[in-house]
Nucleic acid binder design. Structure first.
Lengths: 157, 157
DNA sequence: AAAATGTGATTAACGTGTTAACGGAAATGG
DNA sequence: CCATTTCCGTTAACACGTTAATCACATTTT
């Protein structure tokens, strides 16, 4: 039965799926989120909402296109997320004087308070992860991911 | 202005978001999918549907729980995906004789044909990626991701 | 200036992510 | 046995992923 399965896999001429980059990336993200799940649930944010808030707090007033690229979220998602964060009082919008299509997003003080709380959790989580996965490995992983991500930009199409 | 932004980031006591593992993992997945997008669109499959088919083809008849863990998709997603793949004639379901809660999923010949076509694309894509990102780096990346993913299982909670 | 083209953001439609709850069918243990 | 618990899978509800279409405003072209 195990042999039969191995044969099948060979017949298809494909790499075993479980060892495949897309699934590994999903799994890694799941592991990472498992550390944050409780913290996020307690603050009543999704991971994506949190990303929007962190980027906005860090990079100050920015427009939605930039927010989209910095957070690696598609613009439709950013639009929706900003709508709910706006209702809940975590962000502000200001129309650009010169170009009224563009609006500038920033966080409120309410957000900055949440952020300060979360900073402690962040340190704790990071420490917990580094206890199982050395900082040197983490650096190398981040380096390789950055390099992998850049392979698209270096091409001429 | 750039200084002001840097100060903000420091004040929050957080690592720059863009260099952060969750976003890097998302970006890496996006890059990977960008190579597959056209192929998948042409076959009229989503990446997740394709993952389900590949795992099922490779690991033969399996139940939905196993399919879920092998594909790194949540069970509700697998349920929905199987419903649409079933309607389109790509999978079969057979209830377990002994335990009628369980059902065994397998692919149809129609799927195996698609898979054979895609095998060629797969090789081409893999080659294209390895032209920009050495196989040794790829192996190291995969090794690190596997190791990172395992940190959760090695804990006692 | 009017027409054509381009751009920032939103909406629409459908599929997946995520959590909780539910239904039915085993297994367990009084 | 019957009640309880556990387990497999599905449904429900809401948020995000993804692509295409749309809207409003800017820019360019003639």
């Amino acid at each position: 039965m195990a042999q039969e399965q191995a044969k099948k896999s060979e017949d298809l001429g494909l790499v075993p799926v479980g060892k495949t980059l897309p699934i590994l990336l999903v799994r890694a993200r799941d592991v990472l989120l498992s550390y944050w799940r409780d913290v996020l649930a307690e603050m009543n944010f999704t991971e994506q909402q949190w990303r929007v808030l962190r980027v906005t707090a860090e990079l100050g007033p920015l427009d939605i296109s930039r927010l989209s690229s910095e957070t690696a979220l598609h613009m439709p998602s950013v639009t929706r997320i900003l709508q709910t964060l706006d209702k809940r009082g975590y962000i502000t919008r200001r129309r650009d004087e010169a170009d009224s299509r563009r609006s500038w997003i920033d966080v409120t003080d309410k957000t900055r308070e949440k952020m300060a709380e979360a900073g402690k959790h962040s340190d704790a989580i990071y420490g917990e992860i580094l206890a199982s996965f050395d900082e040197s490995k983490m650096d190398e992983l981040i380096r390789l991911l950055n390099e992998f991500t850049d392979i698209r930009e270096k091409q001429s199409d």
